[in-house]
């Protein structure tokens, strides 16, 4: 993609005009059938886990088991975060499951503010399970509905492949700041799930461009590895340290890796000939 030699403007214009406007890699649409089918399985597995985990989590909330509910919050979200680009295809459900207080005019007090972060607010900011039962019921109903809708959905290839970059854009725009899980500070769980979800897509389509674009594959894998190494420093038990434990240096390493992955993965659709 980089221009290897410096050409004068006019010379470049001529050269560019002669180049055929086709994607870098020659990938036939049929080549994508298997990776998309595999991805559908990945999504289904995550959705089943999401429904099961949400059941356990919301049961704890409703039973008033504050500590148990708190401990389940980070891990329950992971299967949602891993498939977020697909989950987001249904904006009504994404809003009711995963919106944040600042998406709503009256913030935490807004009646439209529901879902994971509303329960997070109760558990961690108000340190109570009081009045959370209706939110718990709605969350479980919403993720169950999401599972149903996605099961019936044919995944659009450009959404699947584009999802690898979309996950990184999410992290870059609103997660690196620690504003996603602002009451619980379990952002690193989300990060891990977002990166895993992005890498899954990348790994599934990787064989299609491995031969033609080895340099790209090496660079992207290297950045995913860098993220894994950085995140593994913060592993604690089955999960992760709280986000405020993240050092400024490591936050910068993650920010740079996320931005680089976002730049590189933004070319993935084009490399696979998708619009």
């Amino acid at each position: 993609m980089k221009l290897k030699v410096t050409l004068s403007a006019s010379l470049f214009a001529i050269t560019a005009a002669l180049l055929p406007r086709v994607a870098a890699a020659e990938v036939a649409p049929l080549d994508l059938v298997a990776p998309i089918a595999d991805y559908k399985i990945y999504v289904s597995e995550n959705l089943e886990k999401l429904v099961a985990d949400t059941k356990t989590f919301t049961d704890a909330v409703k039973a008033g088991e504050l500590d148990k509910a708190k401990s389940l919050f980070g891990s329950t979200r992971m299967s949602y975060e891993a498939i977020e680009p697909i989950a987001e295809l249904f904006s009504d459900l994404d809003g009711s499951i995963d919106s944040r207080a600042d998406d709503h005019e009256k913030a935490e007090k807004d009646p439209e503010f529901t879902g994971f972060h509303r329960i997070e607010y109760g558990l961690f900011a108000e340190n109570s399970t009081k009045d959370l039962a209706p939110f718990a019921d709605k969350l479980l109903a919403d993720v169950t509905e999401l599972n149903k809708r996605i099961t019936e959905l044919t995944l659009p290839p450009e959404k699947v492949v584009g999802g690898a970059a979309a996950l990184m854009e999410e992290v870059a725009a609103t997660k690196i700041s620690g504003e996603e899980d602002r009451y619980s500070h379990t952002d690193l769980w989300d990060f891990k799930a977002n990166f895993d979800g992005s890498r899954k897509i990348f790994d599934l389509v990787r064989p299609l461009i491995e031969k033609t674009d080895g340099e790209f594959i090496t660079k992207v894998s290297g950045n995913f590895d860098k993220v894994d190494v950085t995140l593994s420093k913060y592993k604690k038990g089955d999960g992760y340290e709280l986000y405020d434990k993240l050092t400024d240096d490591d936050r910068a390493v993650l920010a740079a890796a996320v931005n680089t992955l976002a730049e590189d993965l933004s070319t993935l659709r084009g490399k696979l000939g998708l619009n």
Binding site: M1, A9, A24, R269, G270, N275
Partner: peptide, 19 residues
Amino acid sequence: AFLMKGGTPPVLDDKLPPA
């Protein structure tokens, strides 16, 4: 050097983000 001199950036395949 490029930005101060000005000129035409590379034109890429339109399936890719522009340079």
